[in-house]
Design a protein around this nucleic acid. Structure first.
Length: 344
DNA sequence: TAACCGTGGGA
DNA sequence: TTCCCAAGGTT
């Protein structure tokens, strides 16, 4: 705790140890929002999104009243889009069933859309200073090293949770939870941990065994296959773009995208969304998802004003922002844009 | 249980 | 270029 008092990272959603002592209390809405954004995502990537969300939707009530497409567009680029869909669901449940106040216990939070064991414990500890045990990737790593546990993840998870539970203090549990995560993020890092300046170097078993660097052990990962696809970037003569809202379930669910073929390991079939003079762009957008690599061929066409597309809808030029697209679709647009600008 | 679900930065 | 990994949850 002394180490945290002197070394706590400064974050837009955080009430630091000094401010907390002075009586400041975190806003549960901002803690919840930050925790959902931080799932599998770095602090650096989250900061700008957090600012934009809290400026535009300062309270859970404001967020609950937002249009789905506005929230999805604001989330675009951050990834794991089920988080954004569940964020909105959760906000609406909090407003409709809890009077706009987040539940104040771990069990009350657990089971709200998008809130699992980690996030429930994190909100309970950080926002309400309850002695709940927070186990994220940082804590797993710190515990595996502290106890020199060589059992690989995910098998080791229950044991690591138990290690973490035993260490959780009754005093300042919210600061403690953030302290261990800060320690993992800045000292007990995955590669080249700074054991020499670690406040836990004395009791650390992996430090004395010289095994810190190789912990925690993990099961080998499966290789990622390469999938192929075609995207159709169509612009009508008035400048409107032909886009398609993706279904809520599955990859990039609920996001805007270009119409296109299936993405599979076999060469895709041409499947233009509307009859037009589609030209092959030559270049392809390359993108890596969680479990496959994608090579996306890009077709471009200027679509005549009277055309009736089979799929998708035209979005007027002045209402289209590339930043509303998930990254893979923005990559395809960036390739296509060059050709449009060349023609016009 | 294991697969699915994004992205960007660093090594 | 390629691989690893980051404050995980849902199905």
């Amino acid at each position: 705790m002394a180490w945290y008092d002197a070394n706590a990272r400064i974050m837009p959603w955080r009430v630091g140890p000094q401010a907390r002592r002075a009586g400041d209390t975190p806003d549960p809405y901002r803690i919840w929002l930050s925790e959902v954004m931080l799932q599998q995502t770095t602090v650096a990537a989250v900061k700008d999104y957090f600012h934009r969300f809290t400026m535009r939707w300062p309270t859970v009530t404001a967020l609950a009243a937002a249009a789905d497409e506005d929230v999805m567009a604001a989330w675009a680029g951050l990834g794991y889009y089920a988080r954004a869909r569940n964020l909105l669901k959760c906000a609406r449940v909090v407003v409709a069933d809890h009077g706009g106040q987040f539940p104040t216990t771990r069990d009350g939070l657990l089971g709200l859309p998008g809130i699992g064991p980690y996030t429930a414990a994190a909100i309970a500890a950080i926002a309400y200073d309850l002695p709940e045990t927070v186990v994220d990737g940082n804590v797993e790593r710190v515990m595996a090293r502290l106890h020199d546990l060589h059992l690989p993840l995910p098998t080791a998870k229950p044991e690591l949770i138990e290690f973490a539970r035993r260490l959780t203090p009754r005093q300042r549990p919210g600061d403690y939870a953030q302290a261990v995560m800060d320690l993992g993020a800045t000292i007990c890092t995955p590669k080249s941990p700074a054991c020499g300046i670690c406040p836990w170097r004395a009791p650390c078993a992996a430090r004395s065994e010289g095994t810190a660097q190789q912990l925690p052990k993990k099961l080998p990962k499966k290789p990622k296959p390469i999938r192929l696809g075609i995207a159709y970037v169509g612009r009508r003569t008035d400048g409107a773009f032909l886009l398609q809202r993706r279904p809520d379930k599955g990859l990039l669910g609920g996001m805007l995208g270009w119409p296109g073929s299936e993405w599979a390991e076999i060469p895709p079939q041409e499947s233009p969304p509307v009859a037009a003079d589609w030209r092959d762009l030559g270049a392809e957008a390359r993108h890596t998802f969680t479990h496959f690599h994608l090579r996306l061929a890009v077709r471009v066409a200027v679509i005549p004003p009277e055309a009736q597309p089979d799929v998708g809808a035209f979005i007027p030029h002045d209402r289209f922002r590339p930043s509303d697209l998930p990254t893979v679709m923005r990559k395809a647009f960036d390739l296509a844009r060059a050709s449009f600008e060349y023609e016009s």
